[in-house]
Design a protein around this nucleic acid. Structure first.
Lengths: 182, 182
DNA sequence: GTCTATAAGCTGATAGAC
DNA sequence: GTCTATCAGCTTATAGAC
């Protein structure tokens, strides 16, 4: 079984992703992690400390993802777009939670998100060689991520249009094929 | 001077956009609108009623925008992408506020957002004739909107990469030019 | 390291005067 | 239509026992 500290952070992330920032009270997080509020506050002295813990986790996970992206067989652009689908990975959850917390006013979450987004963009620019094309690919991914963040919170809406990933990747290929010579 | 009811709704939207959902307390909204909490509660009987008011406003504003999009000189796709930049318009504010409230757990805001997003996508599909291309354009816009929602809350970050709109519109043109024949 | 008990502050909402 | 006064509930955080 994971350490109590890890379980607390997992629970915090899970509740923020499933229900939002406001329901992620110290009481609720502690209960889900199977500790008392006092026990939680031993590991994270305040709610801001929980956010800080999430930011550290996000930084680690995104650095790992950048490495995988660089080494991806089909190239970083395809890897990036494909992985902007929400599948519930640790990185997905950390990103969604950070986004929610940023929107709830926690500035550190916003800074960490900015850093990770800049790293992704830089990797795309490096791989594609053309800045506008790289920015467009980044925006496509952000768009997917935006849709995920709308969906992951509430119940799934059957009438919400879902994206055909295979077709989208072909659009990405068109974008790369028509990019101006450097 | 606008009616008290409008001033209350304006204040609610403004605080949600500038500081987030949690700081948008009945007290804070009333103070900004220049009425007492009791005065506010006469017009909107609960916080959920404020959200409802915003949703109605968003529905009206987005219907107006769809009309403008259909009639746009450079075509709906260019109009759409250009207008996904956050410039602080009433529609921008309503969209950002709805997104924040959706992420804070207000389901009606999520439903209204879904409706407006579906309407934009349908208009793009109708104008471009190719679904994957239309979805890609929609995602580009969502990506821009995502960047705006990260920026509009906290202070402006000078190191955050900004998008070159002229270059992005050229990418959109490439996308449209290479779309498969119907 | 983890618990219980408690303090102190804030928030949404009601009741009733004007 | 708008105000003041007030309450009940929740949330963060502290203090101190085990």
């Amino acid at each position: 079984m994971a350490s109590a500290r890890d379980r607390v952070l997992d629970s915090f992330v899970a509740i923020v992703c499933e229900e939002g920032e406001r329901p992620a009270t110290l009481d609720a997080v502690a209960a889900r992690a199977g500790v008392s509020k006092g026990g939680l506050l031993y590991h994270f002295g305040s709610k801001a400390a929980l956010v800080e813990g999430l930011c550290e986790r996000l930084t680690d996970l995104s650095a790992l993802d950048i490495e995988r992206m660089r080494a991806a067989e089909d190239g970083p652009a395809r890897y990036f777009v494909e992985n902007c689908q929400f599948v519930g990975s640790e990185l997905d959850l950390a990103l969604l939670a950070a986004s929610r917390l940023q929107q709830a006013g926690y500035e550190e979450a916003g800074r960490t998100l900015d850093d990770t987004e800049n790293a992704w963009l830089a990797t795309l620019v490096e791989a594609l060689g053309d800045v506008p094309t790289a920015q467009a690919v980044k925006l496509l991914g952000d768009g997917l991520y935006h849709a995920a963040s709308l969906g992951a919170a509430s119940d799934v809406r059957p009438d919400r249009a879902s994206v055909d990933m295979a077709a989208l990747l072909q659009v990405v290929d068109r974008l790369i094929a028509t990019k101006p010579a450097p």
